[in-house]
Amino acid sequence: MSLKLRALLKSPWVFHLATGSCNNCDIEVLDCLTPRFDIERFGMLLAPSIKHADILLVTGSCNRKSAIRLERLYKQAPQPCLVVAIGECSMSRGMFIHSYNCPLPLDKIVPVSAYIPGCPPKPEAIIAGAVTLIQTIKGTL
């Protein structure tokens, strides 16, 4: 593992992007940052801009308007940037799969490293997903 990657894994900063979600996943992401779950224990912080972030958390079924913006945002991200799909909508579009406004699933737009299922996933699931992702990259899983 390169030195850069090892340093980044110590404290991965996350950027949260709602691409047409119902708010639930976004609130559970915020829940992770607040006292009861406190994901900062693992060095994770919410970054104000994608240019400062190492992980892009995507919630929601990408709709026509936000899909192009998501693509643009991903291109602005400094590499390596991992994408984590949070919730059923960003995994498979869930019950919005037949919607006229959700043409593509997330992994057809940007490469996705981890999926966290649930509608919405519980904060415990989000933390477990994040820890699993870090362990996979480290090769300690």
Binding site: G60, K65, H98, Y100, N101, C102
Partner: peptide, 14 residues
């Protein structure tokens, strides 16, 4: 607005 539109009214008819 429109960044969150998922066409729920139409989906509901299905």
């Amino acid at each position: 607005i429109g960044y969150n539109h998922r066409g729920i009214e139409k989906l509901s008819e299905m």
